[in-house]
Computed example of a mutant assay.
Amino acid sequence: MAYLDLQNIGKVYPTKQGDFEVLQNVNLSVERGEFVSLIGHSGCGKSTVLNIVAGLEKTTTGSVILDDKPITGPGPDRGVVFQNYSLLPWLTVWGNVYEVVDAVFPDRSKNEKESIVEHFLTIVGLWKHRHKRPDEISGGMKQRAAIARAFAVGPQVLLLDEPFGALDALTRATLQDELVNLMGSTGEEDEANGGTDTVIMVTHDIDEAIFLSDRIVVMTNGPSATIDTVIDVPLKRPRIRSEVINHPIYHEVKQELLEYLHGVPAVR
Score class of each variant (00 low, 15 high):
residue 3 Y to I: 00
residue 4 L to N: 01
residue 11 K to I: 02
residue 13 Y to E: 10
residue 16 K to F: 08
residue 18 G to D: 04
residue 28 L to P: 06
residue 31 E to R: 11
residue 35 F to S: 02
residue 37 S to L: 07
residue 42 S to P: 13
residue 45 G to K: 01
residue 47 S to D: 00
residue 49 V to G: 00
residue 51 N to G: 10
residue 52 I to G: 02
residue 56 L to W: 03
residue 57 E to V: 11
residue 59 T to G: 10
residue 61 T to H: 12
residue 64 V to N: 01
residue 65 I to L: 11
residue 68 D to K: 14
residue 69 K to N: 11
residue 70 P to R: 06
residue 74 P to R: 05
residue 74 P to W: 02
residue 78 R to P: 06
residue 78 R to H: 04
residue 80 V to R: 09
residue 80 V to T: 08
residue 83 Q to S: 11
residue 89 P to S: 08
residue 91 L to K: 11
residue 92 T to H: 05
residue 94 W to F: 10
residue 100 V to P: 15
residue 111 N to C: 12
residue 115 S to L: 11
residue 116 I to S: 11
residue 120 F to R: 06
residue 126 L to S: 03
residue 126 L to D: 01
residue 128 K to S: 15
residue 128 K to V: 14
residue 129 H to N: 11
residue 129 H to T: 13
residue 133 R to Y: 14
residue 135 D to H: 15
residue 139 G to V: 03
residue 140 G to Q: 00
residue 142 K to S: 03
residue 143 Q to F: 09
residue 144 R to W: 05
residue 144 R to L: 05
residue 144 R to Y: 03
residue 149 R to V: 07
residue 150 A to R: 07
residue 153 V to Q: 04
residue 156 Q to E: 07
residue 160 L to Q: 05
residue 161 D to V: 05
residue 167 L to W: 06
residue 167 L to R: 04
residue 178 E to H: 03
residue 178 E to T: 07
residue 178 E to K: 07
residue 178 E to A: 03
residue 183 M to P: 08
residue 183 M to C: 09
residue 183 M to S: 10
residue 185 S to R: 12
residue 187 G to T: 01
residue 194 G to F: 01
residue 197 D to W: 00
residue 197 D to Q: 02
residue 198 T to D: 00
residue 202 V to A: 05
residue 204 H to Y: 09
residue 208 E to P: 12
residue 216 I to V: 06
residue 216 I to C: 03
residue 216 I to W: 02
residue 218 V to C: 07
residue 218 V to L: 08
residue 226 T to W: 04
residue 228 D to L: 15
residue 229 T to P: 11
residue 230 V to C: 05
residue 233 V to M: 03
residue 235 L to V: 11
residue 237 R to M: 03
residue 243 E to M: 14
residue 249 I to A: 07
residue 249 I to V: 13
residue 253 V to F: 04
residue 254 K to S: 12
residue 254 K to T: 06
residue 256 E to L: 15
residue 261 L to M: 10
residue 265 P to Y: 08
residue 265 P to L: 08
